[in-house]
Amino acid sequence: MDKTLAKSDRVFVWLSYAILILSAVFVALPILNLIAVSLSGGNPVTSGDVALWPKQWQWGAYRYVSHSGQFLRSFDMSVVITLLGSVLGVILSIMAAYPLSKPGLPARKFLTLVFVFTMMFGGGIVPQYLLMSGLHLLNTVWAVILPSVSAVFNLLIVKNYFESLPDEIEESAKIDGASPMVILFRIMLPLSAPVVATIFLFYAVGFWNDYFNPRLYLTDQSLMPLQVYLRTVIFEAQDPSGNFKLDQSNLGNIAPQSIINATVILSMLPMVILYPFLQRFFLKGMVIGSVKG
């Protein structure tokens, strides 16, 4: 701690630390309990004995959730949907945002309004489903990707960011003979790493956690993304006639709650891993474009 601080300031800083640590503990405790339960044996979990450290250690719950081929298939599916959707989403957002950020675009206000309109009003489930059905996209990954691939909120973030970049950069590029595409991809884009990372993360989290679209548009089990699969795991674990208990010979005694917790942890793990890598952009990106320089 900085020795030059006045005493009252030091008290304030210590107090802040104390409050922050306390809130961090409050956030961490339930997660620790979640992990402990997922790793504990059936009897201690059933009688509510597990707090923060696992009792009667077992890995069976994780093996149960992940042992089937379906887990890997669903995991692959989610990765494909997330990557493809996020990359396409980022490309589409940038391509739409760039022209909309140029004051010279004819009917610019109207076009922006057209985009914003879809933020507030949607067609509803039935027309969307009929559209997907009519396009023969049911039971394809596109049925999951296309509905969320052009998030207008993300588009506006990029648009505002582009507007905040100095016009002079572009002008000098024009003088050098660059076409609009070249300006976008070779001048603007390299300057936009923070905003790209930000909306990539928005898209990625959205696609990764998407449950509704797959549930609606997919009936082929081999296409089910992870979130849908994990729900079936939870349902099976809660099945009163104990369907999941069948494999007890190799799984051991596991409480349904352990399985549910293992499911939760496995589903959040990839995003938890992804966050630290993108977070430095993320923190910057959240306020990007909010103030026009």
């Binding site: 089937s68 379906q70 549930r215 089990q221 081999s222 729900r231 079936t232 349902f235």
Partner: peptide, 11 residues
């Protein structure tokens, strides 16, 4: 045949 979502591969 369309039936409920479950944790197995029906095919």
């Amino acid at each position: 045949f369309l039936s409920y979502q479950d944790k197995f591969d029906p095919t």
